[in-house]
Design a binder for these strands. Structure first.
Length: 311
DNA sequence: GCACCAGATCGTCAGGCCAC
DNA sequence: GTGGCCTGACGATCTGGTGC
């Protein structure tokens, strides 16, 4: 292990120990009566989750120290112990369900959640384009596309469809899913980059350009406005149409990109939750310390009152 | 200004957990 | 059993502080 990585390894463990120490303080290291109630409660909460005890953490720390001297790390054992920690969201939410004042970590909400499907998203469109048929297209935040018919008074003329660029398509390709079925043939609308999206006939689909499998949907091509040649293909192909090794490789790459992207987001979210969790524990420690101090003072006062003065 | 360091942040991998 | 999610670990990179 390099100097830098070893340093970070130790640092990481120190942080882990700090966190676990805070938990352990809440678990049972405080000794006054109220704190004992607290600790009993916390043991109920955390004990069943098999969070490593202070002893375990100390053992880990000792292991780390010896490993530092010998260059041998029992990482598997350490990982085994630490990996039993449940998610921060779960821990904090379990805490908050029984302890008032402990904030909950919110479940992930989609951006569209809780907003009226048409009106709210229309209020702050990111981009507005006009189609060749005179319809207006608003690309709202979150990728929702809304189509407004000319002459319609706003909301009533809107159709919603979803733009799925998030699926890590091959470079250069843009995927558009148009959920609404158009009554007649070709529809066009403009997209950024001075291109035109043209509704394609099913038989014209070039399989080598397939980038996504999204079921039975109308397919579209992006074309430069001045030419009839496809510049890049926007499509929604039916599943199971990937055959050649190249397509399989592309599909595998796409899946990998998607997985990495999801994991990237998950890691971000996890770190955010961890911060929130640590913050919550720190504030809780502060509250308990104040509480403890007050109780000690109260105890001293009562002692003074009850004990006979020996003058 | 430059080099160095420490801390923070990020992306990725690996492995556990859990719902299905 | 499997796929998806969560999270620790690791390496890379960024950033701010400090000494020269």
């Amino acid at each position: 292990m390099s100097k830098c990585s070893r340093k970070k390894y130790i640092k990481t463990n120190l942080r882990q120990m700090t966190m676990d120490t805070i938990e352990s303080r809440q678990d049972g290291s405080v000794t006054d009566s109220v704190a004992e109630n607290e600790s009993a409660h916390m043991q109920n909460q955390t004990g069943q989750n098999s969070i490593p005890t202070l002893t375990q953490v100390a053992t880990i720390a000792e292991t780390d120290e010896s490993a530092e001297s010998e260059g041998v790390i029992d990482s598997h054992k350490r990982r085994e112990i630490l990996s039993r920690r449940p998610s921060y969201r779960k821990i904090l939410n379990e805490l908050s369900s029984d302890v008032p004042g402990v904030p909950k970590i919110e479940e992930e909400k989609s951006e569209e959640e809780g907003t009226p499907p048409n009106i709210a998203t229309m209020a702050v469109p990111t981009s507005i384009y006009q189609t060749s048929t005179g319809q207006y297209i608003a690309i709202a935040q979150g990728g929702t596309i809304q189509i407004s018919n000319p002459g319609s008074d706003g909301v009533q003329g809107l159709q919603a469809l979803t733009m799925t660029n998030s699926g890590a398509p091959p470079p250069g390709a843009t995927i558009v899913q148009y959920a609404a079925q158009s009554a007649d043939g070709t529809q066009q609308f403009f997209v950024p980059g001075s291109q035109v999206v043209v509704q394609d006939e099913e038989t014209e689909l070039a399989p080598s350009h397939m980038a996504a499998a999204t079921g039975d949907m109308p397919t579209y091509q992006i074309r430069a406005p001045t030419t009839a040649l496809p510049q890049g293909v926007v499509m929604a192909a039916s599943p199971g149409s990937l055959h050649s090794p190249q397509q399989l490789a592309e599909e595998a790459t796409r899946k990998r990109e998607l997985r990495l992207m999801k994991n990237r987001e998950a890691a971000k979210e996890c770190r955010r939750r961890k911060k929130e969790y640590v913050k919550c524990l720190e504030s809780r420690v502060a509250v308990l310390e104040v509480q403890n101090k007050k109780l000690i003072e109260e105890l001293e006062t009562l002692k003074d009152i009850c004990s006979p003065k020996t003058d």
